[in-house]
Amino acid sequence: MKAVEFENVSFSYQREDDENRKFAVKNVNLSVEEGEFVAVLGHNGSGKSTLARLANALLQAQEGKIIVMGMDVSDPAMQFEVRKNVGIVFQNPDNQTVASIVEDDIAFGPENIGVPREEIGRRIEKALSDVGMTQYRDRMTSALSGGQKQRVAIAGVLAINPKVMILDESTAMLDPKGRREIMQVVKRLNREEGMTILLITHFMEEALLADRAIVMNRGEIVMQGTPDEIFERHEELETYNLTLPGIGALCKKLQDGGMPVPYVLTPEELAEEIAKCVFRQNG
């Protein structure tokens, strides 16, 4: 089954009768399979965050159709069901915490959809263990680090039992340690729990974990493919104001210098390729 489907979707923040209105999202066609991990790349203002808000019915598309787990997002009667199925983790960890205590915050979602009390307790426990924060259940949210706050936010979404989780630049404000923590959690949720993941980011290296990557520019999808395929087309990426992760830039420099290394994605692979070149020369 398709988890998320966009059909010719367009959206503008300006009024419909505005003559020179700009589209934040324009003619987007996208379909995400259940259990798939898709990365959406794009520079700031490319429309990638608008995509998240459309999928969760926080915004309504002016043109086109969005189907989430078989439900039409534009149907007001289905809005609640859509949100139960698609959770979003936002960028700023401070601005999505409702309660002062970790477990109270995680309870907020399940409370809203009317989950019985005992079941909420079980869901909190499961969600906290999923994000590796079990021992923080009674802590104050304000005393946590950025990465921990963001993991609580993920737990808060997990407790609603969604099928799809959208991470809307959820790592942008974190330090590298916090970022690693989040990416580990996301990877595990996808691989072990089968959660469909839509990862919106401008950190190219995060896209490496995805099955598929999509590049957005000026509201349109301009590139699609596996992360390897996308990074292979680095010159095109640069025209969309995206630069390769450090490793890609290094590959390019070596190629320019006359060393026949292919594009690779990790330091270990690059070392491997360099060694191959060197030993080949050596005979």
Binding site: L58, R83, G87, F90, V98, N112
Partner: peptide, 9 residues
């Protein structure tokens, strides 16, 4: 937005 997304109604 975050509250809406978490089904607050």
């Amino acid at each position: 937005d975050a509250m809406d997304a978490r089904c607050y109604a």
